[in-house]
Amino acid sequence: MTMRKQETSLSAEEGARLMAAVAGERNRSAFAKLFDYYAPRLKSFMMRSGMTSPVAEDLAQETMLLVWKKASYFDPLRAGVSTWIFTIARNVRIDRLRREGRPSAADSLDPSDEPEEPASAEASIMAAERDERVRAAIAMLPGEQAEILRMAYFGDKAQSEIARDLGIPLGTVKSRTRLALNRLRAILDDLV
């Protein structure tokens, strides 16, 4: 048993390099670095979606297992590593909620599964740019609006629950979400 340290940062370039090593050579130390960075965050993601700690850890493991298995589908020209892993985790969560028999967003669509055509050179610029634009946009959003968008990702939480958590009326959550999205759209369109 090895003591693993938690990675506090991972640049997009480093992440893509590690993914290439996992896909190409099934490189375990590269995978270990990805694991150390992503698995604790994936567990956090699942816990925020209302999973208990053991279930969240199990789903984080399941997500990383898929990262290992599907590594060759990762295409840095299409999406950053964090975005790609987010979509896998999102689908793992959907699948879990469905098996629990809760109404959820389950279906067979799994972008990480699709046989992808090679992205064009134009698309490759877009993927890196998109990540930067989106990050810049979050930084420019007022804190309260960024928070309400963040909550939209970590749930299963209905807006009514978000309202309870924030101690504000449901109508306010709806209008705040709409405001935040309008603002985000304006910022993103401006950053093109």
Binding site: Q6, R41, M47, G80, S82, F86, R130, V134, I138, Y153
Partner: peptide, 13 residues
């Protein structure tokens, strides 16, 4: 991509 950025920002559990 927003989801990816939020994932990055999460505290490590």
């Amino acid at each position: 991509a927003l989801g990816g950025a939020f994932l990055d920002d999460l505290p490590a559990e």
